[in-house]
Design a protein around this nucleic acid. Structure first.
Lengths: 336, 336
DNA sequence: CGATCCCATGAAATCGATTACATGGCGACC
DNA sequence: GGTCGCCATGTAATCGATTTCATGGGATCG
């Protein structure tokens, strides 16, 4: 690969001049510019971004660590982050923590070593010493989707409380009396939030959630399936089920599809936190709470860029939207 | 951030020694190792990977340019690439070309400047001067999923020919006589391949595809929807439709779901190239050709690492699998 | 006990760019 | 016409690591 020195020699000028031409420095004569440009093209010169970064401290690279790339929610988030970053002239290195705090830390460490200009993290666990430290150390850090204790970094979250309230109101209003939830792992902030909101809402209706009505998953497909299997096999089934994320919903739906008799919505109302484009293709169509996923990623990048620019950035909270569909129709209306 | 010099000073040793300790060089005394390690921890020293890369030429980073991150096929591919790369100690910078050759070139350029150790590309177009040049210039390049003319780089492709043959055999055997296809953009190699295979298979059955039976999409959701709208509205509908990728299938299904009378499978048999986890949740369940997506990503990384190691790497072709489901049941069996 | 060899360490060069500082030349202004 | 100043360019330092080469000291072996 041709270096700046090769170009300088071939053009009979100093490396400083070549550098000035390449970076668009104002005081360069047109003659110099043309000559250097011509030779640079001819030699197929591409500035070595690694060397540049070393000198300028600045890599124009952002790091993104998500908790589970298999989950479409996070792939959409990643897509939005990549898109927004590119428009601002940044590249993105992606890390997949697979809901494992150690792997998350592995990536944070690597990304810091690579001198990313900023870091966007979906915290796998509520607490991480490394993240804490990264935040302390004036590293540019933004948390997305999930809160994390003792990490002093701006966050952008989707708050589903209002939508969950609305959902529970609807379920109760349409005659459901025995609500259950398939929750996520306790270590994830979003899981706690959603569970808490659901509990609060049911309590508000005078029907607080008992421990028997809380199934614990891990936000992955298989755990949703297992929970649902358990749930339908139990002697006294609940008459409404709220699944705390989209991945688990896939498992739940799989299991339901294998049953001989359809349970939803007549016997059981079903609602999912996270909407997917194919939910309205199912029969019955699936009631869901839609998160502003793309905006989440977009805002995260903008907040991060603002932090990089030295600005003070407040937390942001985006609202979620309840999409009522067929799976939560009242029992009567649901009879085929 | 503490540098190696800070550590060296604090420990009263040379930077060379610190470097040797950090990189695990064999000839370092235990005393030295302990002392340096202790101080490094204390100062919270993290080696600057940018500086290291400059000296060692090697970034332990791979670049991945995919043609459309909205398409679940590519997100799964990206996930597999990231996973495999991480296991080999590499990070991945992802670029999304959005089916735009210019944007693809933009990313290739940036990734080359960043000195990635290797590049995995899903070519947006059949030809790209920059890719051609990158391949020529002994850059480590591997193409995935789609062939590209005049780019001399190893490829790993999924060949759907056999599965498409099988599909057409099945359609004909179950009484379908008027087959149609919603194809992708002509610039994409996979689109050409799939269309060619479909045409060949129908011809083999003595019913060559006429131009009227070929709808042109662009591999995106909206184009699938538009094509299907056109198709169902036409006076003489075909009795079987093959959709050339999963994104377009989503649009097709959306449109079908909005119709009052179900057409599939009685009036129209439907099959899709690309399987998705939720295809078996639909009613009818959806016949699809499954690609070995994860293996594709995995093999791409291994081939790339082999190239980086200087080995000669042959092209690879992986086979696809036809999954017959409800949407291609014979008309008789399909009556509700 | 002396010669030899190797091991641990340090000094300094190096990777490829950017940039502070020096310098020469030319135009402008009085 | 002389002085001042700025503009274009070059020289060399710099970023933070790795690595070559030199060196001194200790162990080994005869």
């Amino acid at each position: 690969m041709a270096t700046i020195k090769d170009v300088a020699q071939a053009a009979n000028v100093s490396t400083a001049s070549v550098s000035r031409v390449m970076t668009g420095h104002p005081s360069v004569s047109p003659a110099m510019r043309d000559k250097v440009m011509a030779i640079a093209h001819e030699l197929n010169f591409r500035p070595n971004a690694v060397a540049r970064s070393l000198r300028t401290t600045g890599t124009r690279t952002l790091g993104l660590v998500v908790s589970d790339l298999l989950n479409p929610f996070f792939t959409e988030l990643a897509r939005a982050v990549e898109d927004t970053a590119r428009q601002a002239g940044y590249s993105v290195i992606v890390g997949n923590a697979d809901e494992d705090p150690d792997q998350q830390d592995h990536y944070v460490r690597i990304l810091l070593e690579r001198q990313v200009d900023g870091l966007i993290v979906v915290p796998t666990a509520v607490t991480s010493p490394l993240l804490h430290e990264a935040a302390e150390h004036a590293h540019n850090l933004v948390l997305v989707d999930r809160p994390a204790a003792d990490v002093y970094a701006p966050m952008v979250l989707a708050d589903g409380t209002r939508a969950i309230d609305e959902l529970v109101d609807h379920l109760v209003a349409t005659g459901r009396r025995d609500l259950a939830v398939i929750a996520g792992p306790d270590q994830a902030g979003t899981s706690r939030q959603r569970l808490a909101a659901f509990q609060a809402a049911t309590a508000r209706h005078g029907m607080p959630l008992t421990e028997r009505r809380i199934w614990r998953g891990d936000f992955r497909r298989a755990s949703g399936r297992a929970a649902m299997a358990d749930l339908v096999a139990s002697p006294d089934r609940p008459d409404a089920v709220f699944v705390a994320n989209g991945s688990m919903a896939l498992g739940v739906l799989e299991l339901l599809a294998e049953l001989d008799t359809p349970l939803v919505p007549h016997d059981i109302a079903l609602a999912v936190f996270d909407d997917m484009p194919w939910f309205s293709l199912l029969r019955p169509t699936l009631t869901a709470i839609e998160q502003p996923t793309a905006r989440l990623g977009e805002r995260a990048v903008h907040m991060l860029l603002a932090r990089i620019a030295g600005e003070d950035v407040p937390d942001e909270t985006l609202d979620c939207r309840l999409l009522l569909r067929g799976s939560t129709l009242p029992r009567e209306a649901a009879q085929p």
